[in-house]
């Protein structure tokens, strides 16, 4: 595999920064009461979405989860439309009818976030079936958590995809918890990737906080899928820095220790990557300039969301059926 260009590396860094800045802004606006509903943030897990999505072609597809802001941004989602949706505004991705857990942009290949844990896994499998039947050359990436890997939807889908050699990559974001339940208390295995063997597909485990490691593994899996060799289960070990959602107090220290949180913060995917880029010849000024730009884009998104109108009540009863 050829080495990553500096342009590509900076793109990955910019996307991770954007996700981080977006999520940190959500912390703020959520606390201010500007965002209703639930906010499951992706802070700490940025390298997974970015490493994987930068291995995709624009026409490729993803399915996402309740913790989906990062996937959306990494696949090219517009932070203005996202922020407006978080605020429940008419100009948002779903006209204010979906909210954080249901953002989709089918033109960008974002088949949709999902409020049902494991709900997206069969959908990704079906999208891969569609790609295969249409001979479209598309690959589908299915994001889901360690907790979701215990749902029947996971097992049934992986079996089907392996059987039919579907062009799909199952990306398990193993952040060690399903809400309060630690992995060791919800499954009797350490690596979710071992489950791949049961279905007859490769299973790979990588450091999910190392964006280039994720990217490299994703490229192998995506190439394999595109060449008709079938699915892969790619497990990325990572950690969420915030609580399960904003409102899970003290970043979830009811069920995980302060030391554990701090130890993972040391492995922050952004900090690690900055050091790598600087060592590779990027200047501090370049990084600062990028940060500045990203921050401006996020501020503009908040302004856009704030200035946008709420949907009219008639919207509530529209779109129940097509046509």
């Amino acid at each position: 595999m050829e080495a990553l260009t500096m342009e590509k590396r900076l793109k990955m860094y910019r996307l991770m920064l954007t996700i981080r800045a977006f999520e940190e802004k959500i912390v703020e606006v959520y606390a201010q009461g500007l965002m209703p509903g639930l906010a499951h943030l992706y802070v700490g897990e940025e390298a997974v979405a970015v490493g994987v999505c930068t291995a995709l072609e624009p026409a490729d597809l993803i399915t996402s989860t309740h913790r989906g802001h990062g996937h959306c941004i990494a696949k090219g989602g517009d932070v203005k439309l996202m922020m407006a949706e978080m605020f429940g505004k008419d100009t948002g991705y779903c006209r204010g009818k979906g909210g954080s857990m249901h953002i989709s942009d089918i033109e960008l290949g974002i088949v949709g976030a999902n409020g049902v844990v494991g709900g997206g896994i069969p959908l990704a499998t079906g999208a891969a079936l569609s790609a295969q039947m249409r001979n479209s050359g598309q690959v589908v990436v299915c994001f889901f958590g360690d907790g979701a890997s215990n749902n029947g939807s996971f097992h049934e889908s992986l079996n089907l995809a392996a059987l039919w050699r579907l062009p799909v990559v199952y990306v398990c974001e193993n952040n060690g918890y399903g809400i309060s339940v630690a992995q060791s208390r919800h499954q009797a295995i350490k690596d979710v990737a071992v489950r791949a063997a049961a279905y007859g597909m490769p299973g790979v485990t990588v450091d999910g906080n190392d964006v280039e490691a994720v990217h490299a593994a994703a490229r192998v899996a995506v190439d394999r899928a595109r060449q008709g060799e079938g699915p892969t289960l790619l497990e990325c070990k990572t950690y969420r820095f915030r609580g399960h959602h904003e409102g899970d107090p003290n970043r979830g220290n009811r069920y995980r220790s302060r030391q554990e949180i701090v130890a993972w913060e040391e492995k922050c995917p952004l900090k690690g990557y900055e050091a790598k880029l600087l060592a590779g010849g990027v200047t501090w000024e370049q990084l600062e300039e990028l940060k500045e730009k990203v921050q401006q884009a996020i501020e503009a998104a908040v302004q856009y969301a704030n200035a946008s109108p709420f949907p009219p009540l008639t919207a509530a009863l529209a779109d129940v059926y097509a046509g």
Partner: peptide
């Protein structure tokens, strides 16, 4: 007769 929408007024 609709799914439950997100935006509070809806």
């Amino acid at each position: 007769e609709a799914p439950i929408p997100f935006s509070p007024s809806l």
